[in-house]
Computed example of a mutant assay.
Amino acid sequence: MTRFEELFAPHLDAAYNLARWLTGNDSAAHDVVQESALRAFRFSQRFVDGNAKAWFLTIVRNESYTWLKATAGRHWVAFGDDVAQDPGASSHDQTPELLAIHTENAALVQQALCALPPAFREVIVLKELEDMPYKDIALVVDIPLGTVMSRLARARAMLKLELLKLYDHE
């Protein structure tokens, strides 16, 4: 059990984050991470050396897509109002007006990100939220490094368009 704890337990938060963004469902994300952790534990002998986070997140990504396929056509719950805020958002230095603006902007970014197709959403989540290097994203998503960069550029452009649409509707 110590091998699993050393290699993969430190990445459970990243795993949940990726699963939640891909499935759009809190409960499903917990299930996906649990199943992924079980698989990582069961097949940890296959992981010889290298990037444990990328290996584990690859399992999480695959499990997330398996969940999406299994629930295709069913109604799934989108993200709720529990928008993640940065630690500075609750600072006593911020006025209620600034906090409201921050919360509203975070909700709009979250809504725009959720509107992206999963293939584009995942590269944004891995790069911008998990701060993974391009080469590690390529391992997780199983695409060439150049494709990661071009997909990330397209995802950012798509995100910008979604945000513009949302801001225009306000």
Rank of each mutant, 00 (worst) to 15 (best):
F4V: 04
A107N: 08
A15F: 10
A112L: 13
V32T: 05
H30T: 11
F79D: 11
L99V: 12
N25W: 10
D168N: 12
A138I: 05
W76Y: 11
R74V: 03
A28F: 04
R156D: 00
I143P: 03
I137R: 02
L166V: 04
V109E: 10
S90F: 10
P96S: 07
F43P: 00
T66G: 07
D136C: 05
T58F: 01
L126P: 01
D81C: 05
E104F: 06
W55N: 07
R154L: 10
F120M: 09
P144R: 02
L99Y: 00
F43K: 11
V32G: 07
N17D: 12
D86M: 08
N62C: 01
R156L: 02
A119Q: 13
M158G: 09
I59G: 01
L113C: 08
L161K: 14
E97V: 12
F8V: 15
E97W: 08
R121H: 06
I124C: 07
S64Q: 09
P96A: 03
V109G: 02
T2C: 00
W55V: 06
D93Q: 09
S44T: 07
L108R: 15
A19H: 10
Y167A: 12
P133H: 10
V141W: 07
T58D: 04
P133F: 04
A19N: 13
A153T: 11
L129H: 12
I101D: 09
Q110S: 13
P117S: 15
P144G: 15
E5L: 05
A28K: 04
E97A: 14
I59S: 03
W21N: 15
L38P: 00
S36G: 15
L38V: 12
F43Y: 13
P133C: 02
D81A: 14
K127C: 04
A19Y: 10
L116A: 03
Q94A: 08
L22V: 11
A54D: 07
E130T: 07
Q45M: 04
R39A: 11
Y16P: 01
F79T: 03
I124G: 01
V125T: 10
H92R: 10
V48A: 06
D49H: 11
A52Y: 10
W55H: 11
A29D: 11
E128H: 06
R39V: 07
